[in-house]
């Protein structure tokens, strides 16, 4: 089992390296190779998660370890969806390393076999956490597109038509796909939050607290994205502003996911 996870981790590392290598060489063969080993890593990772689920008998979501690993899996899933739909793999150079880091963190964390308290253990847990992590992954992708946008814009403004300039997608395209990622993320997150609310309502032993810091920061993150979407719609915040807000939003996601628990007590384990 551990070996399987380590193997996944190493494949993601290789995928990250080859994605980065593509950006520096522009060799399409490397690009194709990086894409296929990412798919291979994803398949292995999925297999590992299912195996762990079956072994434990419960959906593995009790530890930081599980959540970080699932986060990485969701990032790759969203990336593969985008690559499939848009035929644009360049974003992989930005998000595959993120998945690798998430998995690396997971690897260093302790993992037990204890399950979430039985009262919470049901399909609510699965759907709530899945939606939230898929939303996070979509925001990671939006962050990737934001970075690509800013780099490309800088190249165009400074009139530096280098290799990177040729490889990165057109500004309008990065902006549009990044925007769609945010839109998808907000929808997924909204569903995840609603499920979370209903879930706790159904469980007697957990008293619903609006003041739970995790909840507050989640709502704040959600608001950042919703606000950005509205302003874009009304005032035409295209381009650089979308890119910046994707980056700010990503910081908020990171803090909500990992930061809150470090500083504040919460009813969420993670």
């Amino acid at each position: 089992m551990d070996f399987l996870f380590l193997l996944t981790l190493l494949i993601y590392l290789a995928a990250s390296i080859f994605h980065a290598l593509f950006l520096t060489t522009g060799d399409r063969k490397i690009d194709r190779f990086a894409y296929w080993i990412t798919i291979g890593g994803f398949a292995l990772h999925s297999f590992y998660l299912v195996l762990r689920w079956l072994r434990q008998g419960e959906f593995p979501m009790a530890y930081w370890y599980d959540s970080a690993s699932f986060f990485a899996w969701a990032i790759i899933l969203i990336y593969l969806c985008i690559a499939h739909l848009t035929r644009l793999r360049t974003v992989g150079s930005f998000v595959v390393p993120a998945a690798f880091i998430a998995n690396l963190i997971a690897y260093t964390l302790p993992k037990g076999n204890a399950a979430v308290s039985p009262a919470l253990q049901n399909y609510w847990l699965i759907t709530h956490s899945s939606f939230i992590f898929l939303a996070y992954a979509a925001f990671v992708a939006a962050f990737g597109f934001g970075l690509m946008y800013l780099i490309e814009e800088k190249r165009i403004r400074e009139k530096k038509h280098t290799l990177l300039y040729n490889l990165l997608p057109a500004l309008g395209r990065s902006d549009r796909i990044g925007h769609k990622c945010i839109l998808a993320g907000v929808i997924l997150m909204t569903i995840g939050i609603i499920i979370g609310v209903f879930w706790t309502r159904n469980v007697q032993e957990v008293t619903w607290k609006w003041v739970d810091p995790k909840v507050i920061f989640t709502i704040a993150t959600w608001l950042i994205y919703v606000l950005q979407l509205s302003i874009r719609q009304i005032f035409g915040w295209y381009g650089r502003k979308t890119a910046y807000s994707a980056i700010v939003g990503f910081a908020a996601v990171l803090f909500t996911y990992a930061g809150v628990n470090l500083f504040l007590p919460s009813m969420h384990a993670f």
């Binding site: 490309e152 165009i156 300039y165 997608p169 057109a170 500004l171 309008g172 395209r173 549009r176």
Partner: peptide, 9 residues
């Protein structure tokens, strides 16, 4: 080419 790099289409 530049126009395409900005607008895509």
């Amino acid at each position: 080419q530049l126009a395409k790099k900005i607008f895509q289409s």
